[in-house]
């Protein structure tokens, strides 16, 4: 489903190289976890997958279902089924959450040649997803993410994911900021979405999330490269030993 080939990328306006040859393949139905020390390039990778213009790809390619996405803008990528749950979701004053959700959902449906949802159908869908994620209806009356607590923002990201039903879900530290109960609720939400056609790229620092969302593969990103790949036991090993040994081995 996703093939990242020798991806090199730098900050567009100042040239600092952040990704230095990332290779990563994720199959449909797979849950891949990416771990790695602060500043290793995990968020950058997720932004580049989503199509953020602040970064410039200097070498390599990103193939999604066999086709390069590098020329697609973020909206086109989303319509093709890519979704990024942000590490730091943005507050957008003045944009009502419901208006946003409806515009996004219908824009994607339109891009895929599907009929737009009627308002009642849309409302039912939002209500059902919000209930599952224990998101208070009042929150959805506010402007997008404005005044949401850290954990509320993360839940709202997963609500968006559940509504948009993407094919490739990239989750950047969705666990950080969530309380213990919320972690369970969000993980249940994610697990409910797991299917043969859908893949997940889960970025996290902690084993705890991976207890709930059990990964098929675990990759360690370090200084812009994947330096080690393993199964779920790699995450356990990192939890116990830290990164030092793996970094030494790779050096």
């Amino acid at each position: 489903m996703l093939e990242i080939k020798n991806l090199h990328a730098r900050v567009a306006d100042e040239g600092t190289e952040i990704l230095r040859g990332v290779n990563l393949t994720i199959e449909a139905g797979e849950v891949a976890a990416i771990m790695g020390p602060n500043g290793s390039g995990k968020s950058t990778l997720s932004y580049i997958l989503a199509g953020r213009e602040d970064y410039e790809v200097t070498e390599g390619d990103i193939l999604y279902n066999g086709e390069s996405v590098l020329e697609m803008d973020p909206a086109e990528r989303a319509a093709a089924g890519l979704f990024l749950a942000f590490q730091y979701p943005l507050e957008i004053p003045g944009v009502a959450t419901m208006t946003f959700l409806k515009t996004a959902l219908n824009a994607q449906r339109k891009a895929r040649g599907e009929a737009e949802l009627t308002t009642p159908d849309f409302m039912r869908k939002v209500k059902a997803s919000a209930e599952e994620l224990k998101i208070a209806p009042d929150m959805l009356k506010r402007p997008l993410n404005v005044g949401f607590s850290g954990g509320e923002k993360k839940r709202a990201e997963i609500l968006q994911m559940a509504l948009l039903e993407p094919k490739l879900c990239i989750m950047d530290e969705t666990d950080s900021g969530l309380d213990i109960d919320a972690l369970k609720i969000v993980s249940d939400g994610v697990n409910a979405l797991r299917s043969e056609e859908r893949a997940f790229l889960v970025i996290t620092h902690y084993q705890r999330l991976l207890d709930y969302i059990v990964p098929d593969t675990v990759h360690v990103l370090y200084k812009g490269r994947i330096i080690k790949t393993g199964d779920k036991n790699l995450a356990l090993q990192l939890e116990n030993e830290g990164y030092a040994q793996i970094v030494d081995e790779a050096a």
Binding site: E53, P74, A75, A104, A107
Partner: peptide, 21 residues
């Protein structure tokens, strides 16, 4: 970027932000 990353085309996203302002 945030709005577009949810599949909202650029022109629509800009219009939403201007209206929000």
């Amino acid at each position: 970027f945030y709005l577009m990353s949810r599949g909202i085309p650029e022109a629509t996203a800009r219009a939403l932000l201007v209206k929000a302002f």
